[in-house]
C-alpha cells in the first residue's frame, strides 16, 4: 500500500516536471500560434477595415458569411490565386521532392569529387528568394534574357515578354523556384547516409545493387523523411509570395494566395483586414488539407508496396 502511494506521489512529481518542461513550449505555442490562428478565424467573421480598425465588429449571425461571400463570389483574384497556389503545392510535392531525392541519391554515391559538387550545388540555395526573383527577371527579359533566344530557335520572330503571356507566365514562375531544392536534398541526403551499412551489405549479398538497392532498401527506409519534405515542399509552394511580387505582381493570371492577402490588408487603401483574414483561413485550412493528403497518400502507397512485397 505504501509502495503504491509512493509510486503515485512520484507520478505526480514526474508529471509536474513534464509540465514544467513543456510549459515554455506550450506558452510560446499558445501566444505565437494558437492565439493568432484563433484571432484570424474569429476576425474572418468580422467587419474589420479602415472604418473600425481598432474594434473588429462581429457581422452577426445573419451576415456571418459576408466576408466569405465577398471573397468567394466577388473578389476577382481569389479563385485564380487558389488555383495557382494549389498547383504550386502539388508541383512542390510531385516535382520538387522527386528531383531532390534523385539528386540526394546521386550525392550519396561514393564517387571522387562528390563532396565538392555537393557544396557547389548548395550555393544557389543560399540566395534569398527575393534575389532569385530578380535574377529570373533578367533571365526572362525579352531584351537581354536567355529564354527568348532559346524560344526563337523554335519560333522565329518571337519577341513577347514571357511573363505577360497567360499560361507560360505560370510555368516561368514555377521554374523560378521549383528546382531550388537545396534544403530538401540535404534533409534526404542526411537520412540516406543514416541507413546502416550492414543493411546495404546484406542487400548486396541478396543481389540488390545500385538502383535496385535504392528502390527496395534506401527509399523505404527514408519514407518518413520523404513524407516530411513533401509536406514542407507543398506548403512552401502554397505560400509562394516573393516570386509573384518580383516577377509579375499578379499579371497574366499569376496571383497567389499570399499575394492576395497582402493586396487586401496592405495595398488596398481600405485596409481590409477582415477579408484578408478570410483568405488566411482558407490558407490555414488548405495547409491542413495538404498535410492530411500527403500523409494519406504515403500510408496508402507504402501499404500497397508492403503488400506487393509479401
Amino acid at each position: 500500500m505504501e509502495k503504491k502511494k509512493r509510486a503515485g506521489g512520484l507520478g505526480w512529481r514526474r508529471k509536474g516536471f513534464i509540465l514544467a518542461f513543456l510549459a515554455p513550449t506550450l506558452t510560446a505555442f499558445a501566444i505565437f500560434y494558437l492565439y493568432p490562428i484563433v484571432t484570424v478565424i474569429f476576425t474572418s467573421f468580422c467587419k474589420w477595415d479602415y472604418t473600425n480598425i481598432k474594434t473588429p465588429q462581429f457581422w452577426g449571425w445573419d451576415e456571418l458569411w459576408d466576408n466569405y461571400q465577398y471573397i468567394f463570389q466577388t473578389y476577382p483574384y481569389f479563385w485564380e490565386a487558389l488555383r495557382n497556389s494549389s498547383a504550386w503545392a502539388l508541383l512542390g510535392a510531385v516535382v520538387q521532392v522527386p528531383v531532390a531525392t534523385l539528386i540526394a541519391l546521386a550525392f550519396s554515391r561514393k564517387i571522387k569529387g562528390v563532396r565538392t559538387i555537393r557544396n557547389i550545388y548548395i550555393i544557389p540555395n543560399m540566395i534569398s528568394t527575393a534575389a532569385m526573383g530578380m535574377i529570373f527577371l533578367q533571365l526572362y527579359s525579352p531584351l537581354y534574357g536567355v529564354v527568348n533566344p532559346v524560344i526563337r530557335l523554335f519560333n522565329k520572330g518571337f519577341d513577347e515578354n514571357i511573363l505577360l503571356l497567360k499560361g507560360p507566365a505560370f510555368w516561368a514562375m514555377t521554374c523560378a523556384y521549383i528546382f531550388f531544392t537545396g534544403t530538401t536534398t540535404l534533409l534526404i541526403l542526411g537520412n540516406i547516409m543514416a541507413v546502416p551499412e550492414d543493411v546495404r551489405e546484406a542487400a548486396v549479398l541478396d543481389g540488390a545493387d545500385g538502383l535496385k538497392q535504392d528502390w527496395y532498401i534506401t527509399l523505404p527506409m527514408i519514407k518518413g523523411t520523404l513524407k516530411t519534405v513533401s509536406v514542407l515542399a507543398a506548403t512552401s509552394g502554397f505560400l509562394l509570395y516573393n516570386e509573384v511580387y518580383f516577377l509579375t505582381k499578379g499579371a497574366a493570371g499569376t496571383y497567389s494566395i499570399s499575394y492576395v492577402i497582402r493586396e487586401l490588408a496592405i495595398t488596398s487603401p481600405r485596409t481590409q483586414f477582415g477579408r484578408a483574414n478570410t483568405v488566411a483561413v482558407v490558407q490555414i485550412l488548405a495547409g491542413m488539407v495538404i498535410i492530411v493528403l500527403i500523409n494519406g497518400l504515403y500510408s496508402i502507397s507504402w501499404k500497397k508496396k508492403k503488400e506487393g512485397c509479401r
Binding site: L164, A251, T267, S268
Partner: peptide, 14 residues
Amino acid sequence: GGDVGNAIINALME
C-alpha cells in the same frame, strides 16, 4: 488606391 493602380497596370501590361 494602390490595388486599383496595380490592377490597371496589370491589364495594360497584358
